[in-house]
Write a protein that binds this DNA or RNA. Structure first.
Length: 578
RNA sequence: GCGCUCUUAGCUCAGCCGGAUAGAGCAACAGCCUUCUAAGCUGUGGGUCGGGCGUUCGAAUCGCCCAGAGCGCGCCA
């Protein structure tokens, strides 16, 4: 089904065409003046400019025609030329009924499905996920879900950091500590992580150690068997650990490829660059110079002077693989916005090498999670906070507001743990997704366990209240009712529901989950008002009761869908400690 | 030095391909639980949209200038 707004747009477009107006401006939006109208069209103002005519006259023509439509209650032209449209209650009600019976809640799928590859992981071997990985995973996963929902074929790849200098650093450190690599296969995640920390310190202090690490990295990349064997173990252990982390975040990756998988193709990229005469050797490194504009464009380093591949050639090679193997129409990188120059360079080289001629390359940059000082977040000892620890702290806060196991019937330890987890993750994720991705935010543990106002748990709570009513009402009969709009609050709620499709489309177009977050909050808020003024179970008659139950169920389904697109779960019940 | 991004209520942020009275949340204050979960609802106060100039019938939104902040700028990824 077409959403109510789309149906209105079709009506408006037809009218524009009848008058021979450019249809670019033939669309409505929810009214800025709910006191005057449900929807408004500003097209007459825009048309007036190009046609050099009076906007009010143009508006009146459109309004007069639209007023004849049986779905329209009234149309007026106000101010300089706003077309204010008021809909008939029956039209809104009928739309709600259709939406309630539509498996996609009135959201139309794209007419042009694309193969989209998403890159939003970027974890590294030997490094536990930290707060910096939170945003990439949460935002990326949400965009993945949104794009899938509108009908694209999305393939997500974690793009494991397993081929860089940190590998040589770890191997060098093991050799330094053990004398050789014989014991590597006994090391678990924690051991590896600690070795990496020590390696990092030693390489920073000792230039010779850093040099050795670089040489080992190059050797590893060139296939040194001993190094490769040890590397395989390190990678396997890290992948397993990181998978657990992503499972907890509910972030899904179709592919668990890494930089190392692009190794062969990287060799090809260097060849292609050479054949096209684009590369040159400078200071021992193989580079590609980019045309200088007024913007600083450092060259792209394909092969470093020590013989190892730089991360840029790996990214370029990965583009080629995604185009050749995965038939990517579009590749989206959800990565810290500080890397924007890197992606500009990589995209430009991909263009110069003609490896992705018809693939859209896009970097969705997000802001950093900052500490109270406004700088990227550090723990008190100067380190980065573990993602796992962060989640645990949030859970503890949430747990303190929950009943103890077995205080509530049917809620033993397992059920309480599940509820705590769902609420804590909702708080964390919503906090991260409620603002536009590009803006950073100041990390405050309190925010990650907040329940009031514009938070994830607020929306979960609205859902739980609806669930509670539906349990009492025998949900199976609900869909048989017919939605009737009589009260003002019912009308407002219905119009808010009708805007779901619009929110989805904007979020998909902009790759911006905060639009869904904002919508979900606003819908929950509208419902809460309705809940306070319009009795559902005790409605004046059976028809109204059936109608309101159906409307409430539709709100519940829409909220659940919206939360799902944010990667947030909706518990059946929300419990609170006494 | 060059470039990118940003500056909106006490705080955190929406709004920005020009349009009516600039919106939320938090915080503050005042109300609402014998009725569907008060993690809720209703109301009040709070803004020369960093400053200036320009384009326009109309600018938070577009352009230029200035001030302030953050980030980035070849062998870490």
């Amino acid at each position: 089904m077409n959403s109510l707004e789309k149906q209105l747009n079709i009506k408006i477009k037809n009218i524009f065409e009848t008058f021979g107006f450019e249809t670019k401006f033939a669309f409505v939006k929810p009214s800025d003046r709910p006191d005057l109208s449900d929807f408004q069209c500003n097209g007459a103002l825009a048309l007036a400019k190009t046609l050099k005519q009076n906007p009010r006259e143009i508006g009146q023509k459109i309004a007069d025609t639209l007023a004849c439509d049986s779905d329209i209650e009234g149309v007026s032209v106000d101010g300089p030329g706003f077309i204010n449209i008021k809909l008939k209650n029956e039209f809104i009600a009928q739309n709600m009924d259709e939406m309630a019976h539509d498996s996609h809640l009135g959201c139309t799928k794209t007419e042009d499905p694309q193969n989209i590859v998403m890159d939003f992981g970027g974890p590294n071997v030997a490094k536990a996920l930290h707060v910096g990985h939170l945003r990439s995973a949460v935002i990326g996963e949400s965009i993945r879900r949104i794009l899938s929902f509108v009908g694209h074929n999305v393939i997500s790849d974690v793009h494991f950091g397993d081929w860089g200098t940190q590998m040589g650093m770890i191997l060098a450190q093991v050799i330094f500590e053990d004398g050789d690599l014989s014991k590597v296969e006994t090391y678990d995640v924690d051991a590896i992580s600690n070795i990496y920390k020590r390696a990092n310190i030693r390489c920073k202090e000792d230039e010779k150690a850093a040099e050795t690490a670089r040489l080992i990295t190059a050797d590893l990349q060139n296939g040194n068997k001993e190094y490769v064997k040890a590397w395989k173990h390190l990678r396997a252990v890290s992948v397993a650990a990181v998978k657990e982390n992503y499972d907890e975040l509910d972030a899904h990756f179709d592919l668990w490829l890494g930089e190392s998988d692009a190794h062969e193709t990287s060799t090809k990229i260097v060849e292609i660059a050479h054949q096209k005469g684009l590369s040159e050797v400078d200071d021992g490194a193989t580079i590609i110079r980019l045309p200088e504009t007024n913007k600083p464009m450092p060259p792209v380093i394909l092969v470093k002077s020590d013989g190892a591949f730089g991360y840029q050639v790996t990214d370029i090679a990965t583009i080629k693989m995604r185009v050749d193997d995965l038939k990517a129409d579009e590749i989206i990188y959800v990565v810290d916005k500080r890397q924007s120059l890197h992606f500009e360079q990589v995209f430009q080289v991909a263009k110069m090498l003609e490896i992705a001629p018809s693939t859209k390359l896009e970097h969705v940059g997000f802001g950093t999670v900052n500490g109270q000082d406004g700088k990227p977040f550090k723990t008190r000892d100067g380190g980065v906070m573990n993602l796992k620890d962060l989640i645990e702290m949030s859970k503890q806060k949430v747990r303190s507001s929950m009943p103890k196991p077995d205080e509530v019937e049917g809620y033993g330890k397992e059920q309480i743990d599940k509820l705590v987890s769902e609420v804590a993750m909702a708080a964390i994720k919503f906090q991260d997704l409620k603002n536009t991705a590009a803006s950073g935010y100041i990390f405050d543990l309190e925010d990650f366990a907040k329940f009031d106002g514009k938070t994830g748990p607020y929306i979960q709570y609205a859902i739980a209240r609806i669930n509670s009513i539906l349990r009492k009402a025998d949900e199976s009969s609900v869909s048989q009712g017919k939605i009737i709009i009589s009260e003002n609050d019912e009308r407002t709620l219905a119009l808010k529901l009708a805007a779901f499709d619009n929110a989805i489309n904007r979020a998909a177009a902009d790759k911006e989950p905060s639009i869904i977050a904002d919508y979900a909050y606003s819908l929950a808020q509208t419902f809460s008002s309705f809940y306070n003024t319009c009795p559902i179970m005790n409605a004046t008659d059976n028809e109204m009761r059936a109608s309101r139950l159906k409307l409430a169920a539709l709100v519940r389904d829409t909220l659940k869908q919206a939360l799902d697109l944010l990667g947030i779960k909706a518990p059946e019940k929300m419990l609170k400690a006494n």
